[in-house]
Structures are given as C-alpha cells and as structure tokens.
Amino acid sequence: MKLPASLYSRRAFLNGLIGGWLAALGSAFISPLLKYIVPPTPEPDQVTVPFADYKDMAPHTVKGFAWGNKPGLLQRTEAGEYVAFVGVCTHLDCNVSFVAEQRRFYCACHEGWYDENGLNVAGPPPSPLRRLSVSVEGDTLIVKRQG
C-alpha cells in the first residue's frame, strides 16, 4: 500500500529536523574533543641552564641541552661566544648531530649537511637550522627564542 504524499513528506521533514538537531548537538562536542586530543604543547619562550656546565667548552665544540621536547645545541665559537641552534633538521624533523672533525652538522636521515653557522650546505634540507639567542647572567645561561 502506498502512503499519501502528505504523510510521507511530514515524516521526511521531521527526520530532517531530528537529524539536523543531532548534528547541532554533536557539534557542541567536536571542538572540545579536538582540543583534548591535540593538547597544547607550546615551545618554551626561554630555557635556563647552569652556566658552570658549559663554561669550559673549547671553541668549535657543541654541547646539548633540552629545548622543550627538542634537542638544543649550544656551540662555542672561535671568539668564545655562545650560539645556540634547535638541533632539528629542517627537512623532515630528524635530530641532527655535530661532526666535530668536519665542523659541520649532519642529519643521518637523508644525509643532510649544515655548516658551522647552521647554513644548509648539502643534501635535501631546504633552510638553515633555527637559531636561538644566548645570554649569560651570573651563573645561568639563558636561551631564548629569536625574533
């Protein structure tokens, strides 16, 4: 038996209303849910380390520190200054190492190379290593985001 058209459309209309409101109700949960699933993991504005640990570094050597969840690399220059990099390859996020003999940074993932100043010189990395600014205050070394 076929239903009268008016009956059918009333049903379809109500189905649509209910579906729409369900969607509205659901939407109330989506944004909090997404926020919970991807919690904020902000990069630190600055990191402090005891200067004593880094005081005796020879020129052209590199020592690590923790820049939030990433490796930070502190380098002593010829002139005795300190420079810091985020030790993460700008290609696909691998951690880089400092090859002391060659005075270059090396990324093993796809053989990427950076020179002593963090400039990408060979391999796939598209841009230089990120630099951080370093200052010394008393016995602490302060590493800050640059710019």
């Binding site: 049903r11 509205a24 109700l25």
Partner: peptide
C-alpha cells in the same frame, strides 16, 4: 556554556522526537 547548549539541544530534540513519535 556547553552544558546549557547541550540541554537546549536536548529539549528541542525531544520536542521533535515527540512529533515524530506521534506521526509514527
């Protein structure tokens, strides 16, 4: 705010469901 929103949606939804139940 979410809680108020949820209750509001539920109230409206219940009204719609009631209509739909009567129809069915």
């Amino acid at each position: 705010v979410i809680l108020a929103w949820v209750w509001l949606s539920i109230a409206v939804l219940l009204a719609f469901l009631r209509l739909r139940v009567r129809e069915a």
